[in-house]
Design a protein around this nucleic acid. Structure first.
Lengths: 205, 205
DNA sequence: CCCTTCGTGTCACACCCGTGATACTTTTTG
DNA sequence: CAAAAAGTATCACGGGTGTGACACGAAGGG
């Protein structure tokens, strides 16, 4: 048998082509035929690596989930312990910017994820992945805040997650024309307000 | 000619059917044939009131834009002048909750709007409406904050809009299982932090 | 060397879509 | 009363979709 083909690599290529189609044409633009053209393969080949249309899409959403998860766990939480003031803001900002469309690579991932999150409302097949991502994100942010000794980390994490989601949606979609600079600035302003002493919210000690 | 039919009412019925399909099946579920079935009309009739598939969708997004705009302008901005502390939080909360899916009616509107915002990324035909809505919202929130004498109203409005968007997306889509109570609480927590004296952000005087 | 297996490629089928064209019925207007 | 208009209803066409079923070539194992 011709085992010269790296199956995992091929699958990755196809998923990458699906990403490009997701960005260019949205969720419904990802048909088997278009993916075949985009990846330079024949339809038969695509179907050889992904039995289903459905399984291809699930592979795509899983891939984006893995990538974003890796981005988050790249920075150790322990390194946050003891940080105060602007140093704390900077460290947290750097971690959370990993999830925002601040460069082309992250922009693609944000778009792909957004398409799947919205699609998951109607297509339950994607929910396991999107729900797990949301849970992981909440947990990670909560841990960050706990390491920074923020009062009521769970609630503040919820607000931060909401801000992140809103910023990502606004900057990915063309209804806000929110530039990268403003996204960064808005996130930083929010983090500063969370990490600074506030009436009722005692932060770093 | 048989003018017994109220043209505007019929169009509204069809758009309402499109809303239901949008909620149940998402953007791609809104086909002329399905809208015809959902509205109890013949496909020929639907096409009599909306020449195009495209124009039907544009009518739908315009309708949801009008409704949300009306919700926002319902409460006079002047009434905010002079409010301080918890009274200011409460007044602002009531205004912004108009845009969040806190009841079934608003939930439908949030879903429809979300579907169109995401679709607008790939279908420029919807952009005029979604961009106008985003601009109006930013302006309205900025005015609210100015009336409440918040320092730097434009920047704080940006954060609030981001929180609103994130909360709406999270609670509409099933990846967060964010209940109405938690949506309300998170928004309130954010508004409290904005309207309370913060280092660098001097609020109500 | 054969032959099994993997990878590639091609048809055809049934389904759904938007749209153009065209009748037929009903009711109002001149 | 007749004619015109509005509303309702069908048909067929071309295009795109996922999927099942095949056939063909290449390469590794026995």
């Amino acid at each position: 048998m011709p085992a010269r083909i790296d199956l995992a690599q091929r699958r990755r290529d196809v998923v990458e082509a699906a990403f490009r189609l997701l960005v260019a044409e949205g969720f419904t633009g990802v048909s088997l035929r278009k993916v075949a053209v985009e990846s330079g393969l024949n339809i038969g080949s695509v179907r050889h690596y992904f039995s289903d249309h459905r399984s291809l899409l699930i592979a795509a959403v899983t891939e984006v989930g893995d990538r974003m998860g890796a981005r988050l766990t790249r920075h150790p939480t322990d390194a946050l312990a003891g940080l105060t003031g602007e140093a704390a803001v900077e460290a947290l900002q750097r971690r959370l910017e990993e999830l925002l469309p601040v460069d082309e690579e992250r922009r693609v991932e944000s778009i792909v994820l957004t398409e799947f999150i919205v699609a998951a409302r109607v297509h339950p097949a994607f929910r396991p992945v999107t729900e797990r991502m949301a849970a992981d994100l909440r947990l990670a942010v909560t841990d960050f805040l706990r390491a920074l000794r923020v009062r009521d980390p769970a609630e503040e994490a919820e607000r931060i997650v909401a801000v992140l989601g809103g910023l990502a949606l606004d900057s990915v979609t063309p209804h806000g024309s929110l530039g990268v600079a403003r996204v960064r600035a808005t996130l930083r302003a929010h983090l500063r307000s969370v990490l600074t002493d506030v009436a009722g919210h005692t932060a770093a000690r």
